[in-house]
Structure formats: structure tokens, C-alpha cells
């Protein structure tokens, strides 16, 4: 069987399209690359969707934690503390348990115990908590002068937030937020590993990697392949976030921007 044939059969296996039975002999490199790559669809889906939605909740949480009103502040503080303070795998465990129980209450909750929605919600809340803390830190270190300037221009309320506070916060938080995006992307590997069941052998990249490791009894091929995929996607994240970072800092004078790069020359 040619490699192209394998790609056609298994390229979308993780979402249930293609050959139903997983390969059970030969276990060629091509099969391993294809199936593990197919599993990456799930990792990217979880990472991307959770990060997108998490971003908005994180902004809200950061504003909440920064608010004067204890009714806004306390819930935000506790939310962030609980999700940042406990291992993800325990969060998965409790979420799965909770969704199963909700299921017996109302049929509306049926899809929640499936990974595509249930695990996504956990990852979404988790990343919102971590990013919320990062954004909160950035909010606190917004230069006083910027806020005073906003006041002087007569900006207030939404306009002040939209045009001054929020962009500055993002700019300050961006390097740490990039790290969080990487961590979240890595965390998606835990979904099928210790959180949610895999239906009809549709799993993420780690699921297929461990399938091959189990069948070939050789962990030194599938896991490095998995690692390669993740390194590649981490590089993609870093460069995309780097582009956004450049845009966020566009208005700054060149000297300030390149200062980071100039500094090391001195000590090197």
C-alpha cells in the first residue's frame, strides 16, 4: 500500500472519516505519521477554540479581579485561584463526573460528556483563569502616565478602556500570554489520556501515538513523531504571536522596540 493511499485512508481518521479499522500490521512510518498527524486535528481544535473563547473570559476576569466592587472581585479571585491551583487532570475528572450527572437531569446536557464539548469547556475555563491572572498583572503595571493622559483627553468609560487600557494591557501581557498559549496547546494532550473516553478510536495525537507504542512495543518511534508535530506547531504559535506582538508594539518608537535586541550585545 502506497503512502499516499495511507494518507487518504487515515488522514481524517481522527474525525471519523476514512478507514474504520486502525492498521494492525506493518506499522510503517507512513502510517504512524499519518495517524498521529490526523490526531493533531483534535489538539489544534481544542487549543484554538479554547484560546479564542478563553481570551474574552480572561479579559473579563482580569477586569473583575481589578474591580473595586467586591461582588465582582471575589468571584474572579476564587475562580482564578481554583483553576490555577489544581492540576488539569483533576479538573477533567470532576468535570466529566459533573457532566455525567447533569446528563441524567436533562437531555440538554447529553453532548457535554463527550470530549469535543466537555473537555473543551474545561480547557476554556482553565486557560481563561491562567490568562486572566496574566492580564490582571498587566493591568496593574499599566504606566500611570498613560491613564492620566487618557483622563486629560476626556476619555472615560468604554472609550478609555477600548483605546487605552485594553491595548496597553495586551502589549504588556503578550510575552507571558504566548507562553500560556503554548502550555494550553500542550495540555490538550491530556484530554484522552486521563480525562475523557475515546469513541470509536477517534482520539488526539497522543492517543494514536500510544496506540502505536502499544502495538509495536517500541516507544522510541511514535512518541518522537508526536514530539516533532508539537514542536512544529509550537513554532507556528510562537511566530503568529510574534507577528501580533509586532503589531501591538507598532506605535512605539523604534529604539524602544529594538532595545531588547540591542542589550545583549553589550554583555556577550
Amino acid at each position: 500500500m502506497s503512502c499516499w493511499q495511507t494518507v487518504q485512508d487515515y488522514g481524517l481518521r481522527a474525525v471519523g472519516i476514512g478507514e474504520r479499522l486502525l492498521p494492525r500490521e506493518d506499522f510503517t512510518l507512513c502510517q504512524q505519521f499519518t495517524l498521529i498527524g490526523s490526531g493533531m486535528i483534535w489538539n489544534i481544535y481544542f487549543g484554538l477554540v479554547a484560546l479564542t473563547f478563553g481570551f474574552f473570559l480572561a479579559t473579563a476576569l482580569a477586569m473583575g479581579k481589578n474591580a473595586q466592587n467586591p461582588l465582582l472581585r471575589k468571584p474572579a479571585i476564587w475562580f482564578i485561584f481554583i483553576f490555577r491551583g489544581s492540576p488539569l487532570f483533576i479538573q477533567f475528572f470532576f468535570a466529566y463526573f459533573l457532566f455525567l450527572n447533569l446528563k441524567s437531569v436533562a437531555p440538554f446536557f447529553d453532548p457535554f460528556s463527550a470530549a469535543w464539548l466537555g473537555a473543551l469547556i474545561v480547557l476554556f475555563l482553565n486557560t481563561a483563569a491562567y490568562s486572566g491572572e496574566i492580564f490582571y498583572g498587566a493591568l496593574q503595571s499599566i504606566p500611570k502616565g498613560d491613564l492620566e493622559a487618557a483622563d486629560a483627553y476626556g476619555l472615560s468609560g468604554w472609550a478609555r478602556f477600548r483605546r487605552i487600557v485594553w491595548p496597553t494591557m495586551l502589549r504588556l501581557a503578550w510575552p507571558a500570554y504566548t507562553n500560556e498559549a503554548i502550555f494550553l496547546f500542550h495540555a490538550t494532550a491530556l484530554v484522552f489520556f486521563s480525562g475523557f473516553p475515546a469513541w470509536q478510536q477517534r482520539g488526539d495525537a497522543l492517543y494514536y501515538a500510544s496506540y502505536f507504542a502499544d502495538k509495536t512495543f517500541n516507544p522510541f518511534v511514535p512518541y518522537p513523531i508526536l514530539a516533532l508535530y508539537f514542536i512544529a506547531f509550537t513554532l507556528v504559535i510562537v511566530s503568529v504571536f510574534g507577528l501580533i506582538n509586532g503589531r501591538l508594539n507598532k506605535h512605539l518608537p523604534n529604539a524602544t522596540r529594538s532595545k531588547l535586541r540591542l542589550r545583549p550585545n553589550l554583555v556577550r
Binding site: 474504520r20 489520556f193 473516553p197 475515546a198 469513541w199
Partner: peptide
């Protein structure tokens, strides 16, 4: 798990 995956039943796998 391997056995069920070859039948018509829907396989759901747990760790």
C-alpha cells in the same frame, strides 16, 4: 478493545 473495534458495535475506550 481491538476485538470490539472489528465488530459493528460502537467502541468507547477508557484509560
Amino acid at each position: 478493545a481491538a476485538f470490539i473495534s472489528e465488530t459493528g458495535a460502537t467502541l468507547v475506550e477508557f484509560a
